[in-house]
Nucleic acid binder design. Structure first.
Lengths: 232, 232
DNA sequence: CGTGGCCTTGAATGTATTCAACGGGGGTGG
DNA sequence: CCACCCCCGTTGAATACATTCAAGGCCACG
């Protein structure tokens, strides 16, 4: 494992405050692996053998039922996934696949649980992380249940613009079909939603989004911290 | 605070394994209060001053946006709510109201955070609880995104029948309008969904549900542990 | 230069919401 | 005790919203 990777991971809130020795234990048992695109890393229903950390690339979390499939989230550096399953030693609720060439660090779940039992700083960090994840998921539910698909798209764009530093133009970082699935609609419906947003000063050409009248868009989107802020 | 309440709460997974002294600290600062129906206990966006434990009665968690409202969950004895907000010292993501006369135990959030910092058994219990909540929320999202409203209703009935011990007939424990909102549809749509399920051997008269051909219903519902099992 | 995947568009269909109206049951007050 | 009323649940009709299916264009890649 590269030293630079180790250092990077150490800066994550999850690992920042933990004991040096315990961190060493985790790192010693860790695997680093680079995967090509479109590899299914984990599968819904299977036991969670590793806590996954994305160091490079993009990973999509998705779920399936009865022939349907929906993308639940996309994870980028430095993000982790299936923490809850790891802690509970329970089957994964979601599958994960690489969207591009990606480098991951895999921490054996048993190591994570062991260190969790002995290092209280790590345990506390996990609590904070899980609370964060839980709240994210609640916000997501509110987004799905309280808003129409056009409103969800509008809010997504508002959020992405903020993350792009407020620039008038910015790029979508996922394929539209995945964005559609994430927002809870079909690809066709997303296309039409984008057209509808033209009258609110939004034009999307390929992956390039341009927002000419932010006020109009905001007036439609009505973003609110309790749904749209990743913090809190 | 009644001794019997204390004893009951102590049996909860959250408090079961913690230190006696620390539990005492929590209980000493606790308030017990009985509320009439339709009282708004906490409000979305406000700081979370207390961890709430429902000892008697029913509490509805709901969220609002732009004039819309949706019920997120209903909590019964012995259930807790807003644990994540308490831990993170963050604003509530949901509001809560009593649906009937209810008795609650309120643990000051600051006490909970303090004990969390000092009692590692408590911290671990919180981790497990939060992981559980998080996974529940993910399952809920899958339910919403992967299933139609009729499929959601069908699965809800299947689940409720299991909870009723498999009895052919059982009672709905919430008003239909709230059930509709919980399932992500309007009250009118629920009425129609119920009618549709008649051809699958389901009759609902008032709050009384009767399932005559469980196979037919199961064949429609296609329940799966990764969405419908509360455990795991 | 072909080919496959992604995105878009159109038309038809299906699903869900809205609005309005009505019946019935439970509670209240006369 | 009864009349009244309010709220819940249901139903119908119209509409809005979203999916499906089919087809075609475009770009990237081999």
């Amino acid at each position: 494992m590269k030293v630079s990777d180790t250092a990077e991971i150490r800066t994550l809130p999850l690992f920042r405050d933990m004991d040096d020795a315990q961190f060493e234990v985790l790192i010693r048992g860790a695997y680093v692996q680079t995967f090509p695109p479109q590899i299914e890393l984990i599968t819904e229903g299977e036991p969670s053998d590793f806590l996954h950390i994305v160091v490079e690339g993009t990973v999509e979390l998705f779920a399936t039922w009865n022939g349907h499939q929906t993308t639940m989230a996309t994870v980028r550096p430095l993000g982790t996934f299936i923490l809850a399953a790891t802690i509970k030693d329970a089957p994964n609720l979601m599958s994960a696949r690489t969207l591009e060439r990606s480098r991951l660090v895999l921490l054996p779940s048993e190591d994570v649980r062991n260190v969790f039992e002995t290092d209280s700083a790590f345990a506390r960090a996990i609590v904070v992380e899980l609370a964060q994840c839980y709240r994210m998921s609640i916000k997501n539910t509110k987004n799905l249940k309280l808003r129409s698909s056009i409103e969800r798209l509008a809010n997504h764009l508002v959020r992405k613009q903020i993350e792009a530093g407020g620039a008038k133009s910015f790029e979508l970082d996922v394929e539209k079909r995945r964005l559609a699935s994430y927002l809870g609609m079909t690809a066709e419906n997303l296309s039409r939603a984008i057209k509808t947003l033209q009258s609110y000063g939004v034009t999307i050409d390929g992956a390039m989004v341009t927002i000419t009248t932010p006020e109009a868009l905001l007036n439609l989107a009505k973003p609110m911290p309790l749904i749209d802020d990743p913090e809190h």
